[in-house]
Design a protein around this nucleic acid. Structure first.
Length: 108
DNA sequence: GAATTGACGTTCT
DNA sequence: AAGAACGCCAATT
C-alpha cells in the first residue's frame, strides 16, 4: 500500500468531525501537510461528493459557508448544519469558536 | 505534456 | 489599514 495521499488524509480527518461541530480548510490542511494547502482541501471535498464525507462541516476560517454553491440547493449546506445543531445565519456559522473542531487538538 | 484552475490562507507591498 | 500576490497538491482542459 502506498502512502496515503493528501486527499485520503483529508477524507479521514473530515470524516471524524463530530456532529454539531465544524472545521476549517486551513486547520485540516495544516494538520495534514503542515502547510496552508487549504485549497486542496476544498478540491478534495469537491471530489468527495460521492463519498460519505461531511463536507458541509468544513467552512473557511471565518465560518462562512463558502462552498455552499457546490451543494444541490443553495441552502442545503446550511440546513444540514442546522440539523446537527449548528446555528447558521446568512451562510455564516454562529458561535464559530464554540463549534470549531481543531484536528490538531481534538484528533489523536 | 503544459498551462490553468480550484470549497483558502498567509505574507508582502 | 487595505489590496495584491504567492503558495500549496492534484485534477481538468
Amino acid at each position: 500500500m502506498p502512502e496515503k495521499s493528501f486527499f485520503q488524509k483529508v477524507y479521514e480527518v473530515v470524516a471524524q468531525i463530530p456532529e454539531g461541530k465544524v472545521s476549517t480548510y486551513g486547520a485540516i490542511a495544516k494538520y495534514i501537510s503542515s502547510a496552508n494547502a487549504s485549497r486542496m482541501v476544498g478540491w478534495a471535498l469537491n471530489k468527495a461528493d460521492t463519498l460519505e464525507v461531511p463536507a458541509h462541516r468544513v467552512v473557511n476560517r471565518i465560518g462562512m459557508l463558502s462552498g455552499k454553491y457546490h451543494f444541490d440547493g443553495l441552502t442545503l449546506m446550511q440546513q444540514l448544519l442546522e440539523n446537527e445543531g449548528v446555528r447558521v445565519i446568512d451562510n455564516q456559522v454562529q458561535d464559530f469558536e464554540n463549534v470549531f473542531w481543531d484536528p490538531s487538538k481534538e484528533l489523536i
